[in-house]
Amino acid sequence: MMGVKQRILNILIAIDQLAWVLLTLGKGHPDETISAAAWRMEQQGKLAGRILRPLIDALFRPLERDHCWRAYQSEAMGRQLPDAYRCR
């Protein structure tokens, strides 16, 4: 059974993903968080990534180091996927 903390986290991630798609006027990946996108864009040498990634990482520093890199890794490895969608 899913706990209350996980449900709240799921809602926050969904809001984050929606915000990213809205901010990019539909150009952003629909399953990508702003943090993961910031890391990806910085690695691509884009100005938005070079600005956003350090800001986001600074905001999350009290909770987690290297937040954007961790968010990108989570997306790349499909860690957020339910068991039913994971390759076995």
Rank of each mutant, 00 (worst) to 15 (best):
D57W: 12
F60W: 07
Q17L: 02
K27F: 07
T24G: 12
I8G: 01
I8E: 03
R53N: 06
P82F: 09
A37V: 01
Q80L: 15
R53H: 05
M41D: 05
L22P: 01
C68P: 01
R88M: 03
Q43K: 15
I56M: 14
Y72V: 05
R70N: 05
A19M: 07
K46I: 11
L22G: 03
Q43I: 09
V21Q: 10
V4T: 11
W39D: 08
G26K: 12
V21K: 14
L52V: 01
E32G: 01
A37S: 10
I56D: 12
A84V: 14
L81G: 00
C87E: 06
D83A: 13
I56K: 13
P82W: 09
R88V: 02
A76T: 03
I51F: 09
I15F: 03
R79Y: 07
E42W: 14
P62L: 08
R79F: 08
K5Y: 00
F60E: 05
G28W: 01
W20D: 06
E42N: 15
T24H: 07
I56F: 14
M1C: 01
G78C: 07
R7E: 03
R61C: 05
V4I: 14
L47K: 15
A48Q: 14
D57S: 14
R61S: 10
A76Y: 06
E42P: 10
L47I: 15
M77H: 06
Q80I: 11
G49K: 10
G45S: 12
V21R: 13
Q43E: 13
I51N: 00
C87Q: 08
L59I: 15
R65F: 00
G28F: 04
L23V: 05
L12Q: 04
Y85M: 10
T24I: 02
W20H: 11
G49S: 08
I51K: 05
K46S: 11
K5N: 00
Q17G: 01
